[in-house]
Amino acid sequence: MQTKSVRFAFLKDGIYYFTRRVPSDLRTHYGTDRISFSLRTKSAREAEARGLVHAIKLDEFWFKLRMNGGQVPGSHRLLDDEERTRKPSPTVLEAKDLYLRLKGVGRPKTFHMGADRAVEYLVAASGNKALLAYTKSDATAFRDALYARKLSTSSVERVMTTIKAIVAFVMSESGITAPNPFAGVYLNRQEKAEDRKPIPLPVIRVVQAKCREIDDDLRWLIALISDTGLRLSEAVGLAVSDVQLNSSIPHLVVQPHAWRSLKTTASERLVPLTGEALWAAERIIEANSSGWAFPRYNRSERTNANSASAALNKWLGSYVPEKCVVHSFRHSLRDRLRAVECPSDVVDAIGGWTTIGEGQGYGQGYPLAVKLKWLQMI
């Protein structure tokens, strides 16, 4: 007969046996609805202690069963595969439009162009699918397709990061809890990026002499960049009013315009005009009758720096070493300033590079006279 005084036990032929009913939600894990076995004792006190130990162990085991394969918190709200397939989700093109509409407010054109380009690459590789239709294999195939385009690892990483951000943002906005297939895709970050070569100073002098000899707007542009280190887009997008020749220190005002934004906030700066850059600025003012320093590349709403790059690099190819391009003048300027031991934060101020450090955001920065001193030394 079943004992009333000992928990989790009953007495049979003078021996106590453990007994516990299997919970109904875990019944599929067992071949019976009740667990029972001998506690190997005739003592009620020992049977009580041993039964309690077994009951506690069972409760812990059943809890793990429920967490791993049984009932988990919120499991009734999970979608099965069929429900997920039926649940509508935006296509990647729709996702991009939503992403730019919400996240692109006040962002530069490059932000929009980067999203457009990344999604264009994805659609070309895997098609314009609904977000839930993309798989991890689609993501890795997309990565391989980017490498097949001869993009560097840094460029592949930039594109993949953009796609991952678009998908994550729109999934969150749409209430979709599925994993992001573009997260955690392996990239070979050990691959060394190809160095951009600076142009040797003797070659710069030869190019500058040729610029004076030909004396047209393309050569003025090269001469201007060669002794200021401006980015090509910064120089091409200058307004005539940005060229300040009547100042006590002739200089350029590098600032954002409606037709040309700047890369970073540090890009906004004043750059003294010396050497061939001063000559080029004087020629620009003498010959210009429009509001732009280089009107041929500003005939639409946006500065066409790509067209300028193609024209300048084609001409430079006959004078500069292999792998050197118009952007190499910017690398050369940094080396030239290093050669005269110019402080790195002054170099950054001249070239519009971001200087690391909390204190760099305080004050007005270096005055023109300090920048001029170092530029005159090179």
Rank of each mutant, 00 (worst) to 15 (best):
K4G: 12
S5C: 11
V6D: 04
A9L: 02
F10N: 09
L11E: 12
D13H: 14
R21A: 08
R21W: 10
V22D: 03
L26F: 07
R27Q: 09
G31Y: 15
G31P: 15
D33Y: 10
F37T: 02
S38V: 04
S38Q: 06
S43A: 05
S43V: 05
S43P: 02
S43L: 06
R50A: 09
G51D: 04
A55C: 05
A55R: 09
I56C: 14
E60H: 11
L65A: 15
R66I: 00
G69T: 12
V72D: 09
V72G: 11
P73F: 06
D81K: 12
K87M: 06
T91V: 04
L93S: 12
E94L: 00
A95P: 01
K96C: 10
Y99W: 03
Y99T: 01
R101Q: 14
K103H: 06
G104N: 03
R107S: 03
T110P: 05
A115Y: 04
Y121R: 04
Y121G: 02
L122G: 07
V123I: 08
A124S: 15
A124K: 15
N128C: 03
T135G: 04
T140V: 13
A141N: 12
D144T: 05
L146Y: 00
L146S: 00
L151R: 05
T153Q: 13
S155C: 07
V156C: 04
V156E: 06
E157H: 15
R158I: 07
R158M: 12
T162P: 00
E173D: 10
T177G: 10
G184I: 04
L187Y: 03
N188H: 14
Q190L: 14
L201V: 14
P202D: 03
V206E: 11
V207F: 05
Q208V: 14
A209M: 08
C211Y: 05
R212I: 03
I214H: 09
D216F: 00
D217A: 10
L221H: 09
A223K: 10
T228A: 02
T228I: 03
L230P: 07
R231P: 05
V236D: 00
G237P: 01
V240D: 02
V240E: 01
V243T: 00
S247C: 09
S248V: 08
I249W: 07
V253M: 15
Q255V: 10
Q255A: 12
P256E: 06
W259R: 02
S261A: 13
S261F: 08
L262K: 08
L270A: 14
T274A: 12
T274P: 13
G275L: 01
E276G: 13
A277S: 08
A281Q: 06
E282S: 11
I285H: 03
W292K: 11
W292N: 11
A293W: 00
F294I: 08
R296P: 01
R296V: 11
Y297N: 08
S309H: 11
A310N: 15
A311G: 07
G317W: 07
Y319T: 08
Y319P: 11
H327S: 03
S328Q: 00
R334W: 04
R336P: 06
P343V: 02
S344C: 08
I350W: 06
I350V: 08
G352K: 05
G357Y: 07
Y362K: 08
Y362E: 10
Y362S: 08
Y362D: 09
G363Y: 00
G363I: 01
Q364D: 13
Y366A: 04
P367D: 11
L372P: 13
W374L: 02
M377L: 13
